[in-house]
Simulated assay, not measured.
Amino acid sequence: MTNPISACDTSPVLARPAAPENLNLAILTATTAVITWNAGPGGAPVAYYRALHTGLPGGWVAASRGNETFMSIKSLSPNSRHDFYIFAVGFDEIYSLASEPINCITPEEVYSWPPDAPAEDKIS
């Protein structure tokens, strides 16, 4: 009689990283958002993080360098709503569950003009 335990699959169970927590909008301009977060407790080690922007085709907009817990997302549309989710990605490319979303509305773009031109450059 064979032992049923020895016939079990012995390949490792792949664990996913814990979902990021406590997302915070650190900086917001008309075209850029800087998001920070805390690593979730437990789970597999994190290789890097990815941001999902739900308003864009394809959605993925940025990846962190290594396991840094902040990200700068650029080329946003001014005066628009943006919804982001952050995912932790393990060294085996398994994604965590999504973080809670962070939402923002970018301000309108403000254009500034150069300071007063010298008098000789002014048109009368």
Rank of each mutant, 00 (worst) to 15 (best):
residue 95 Y to R: 08
residue 89 V to I: 08
residue 101 P to K: 09
residue 91 F to M: 07
residue 7 A to L: 15
residue 3 N to E: 08
residue 112 S to G: 14
residue 33 A to K: 07
residue 33 A to Y: 05
residue 56 L to S: 13
residue 1 M to R: 14
residue 39 A to F: 00
residue 47 A to I: 00
residue 117 A to C: 12
residue 92 D to H: 14
residue 39 A to C: 04
residue 102 I to P: 03
residue 114 P to V: 04
residue 53 H to K: 03
residue 44 A to W: 01
residue 67 N to D: 07
residue 109 E to N: 15
residue 82 H to M: 02
residue 118 P to H: 03
residue 34 V to L: 05
residue 35 I to P: 00
residue 27 I to S: 02
residue 11 S to P: 13
residue 121 D to K: 10
residue 13 V to M: 12
residue 15 A to Y: 06
residue 41 P to A: 05
residue 60 W to S: 04
residue 88 A to E: 04
residue 85 Y to F: 14
residue 80 S to E: 00
residue 110 V to F: 12
residue 3 N to A: 14
residue 28 L to V: 05
residue 72 S to G: 03
residue 116 D to Y: 02
residue 52 L to I: 01
residue 93 E to F: 12
residue 19 A to W: 01
residue 12 P to I: 15
residue 28 L to N: 04
residue 68 E to K: 09
residue 27 I to C: 02
residue 67 N to M: 03
residue 120 E to G: 12
residue 16 R to C: 12
residue 7 A to V: 14
residue 122 K to V: 03
residue 24 N to I: 10
residue 60 W to Y: 08
residue 60 W to P: 08
residue 118 P to G: 12
residue 31 T to I: 04
residue 59 G to L: 00
residue 1 M to V: 15
residue 101 P to Y: 07
residue 11 S to L: 15
residue 19 A to G: 12
residue 60 W to C: 02
residue 83 D to A: 06
residue 26 A to H: 05
residue 74 K to R: 10
residue 1 M to T: 15
residue 104 C to A: 10
residue 113 W to F: 10
residue 27 I to A: 01
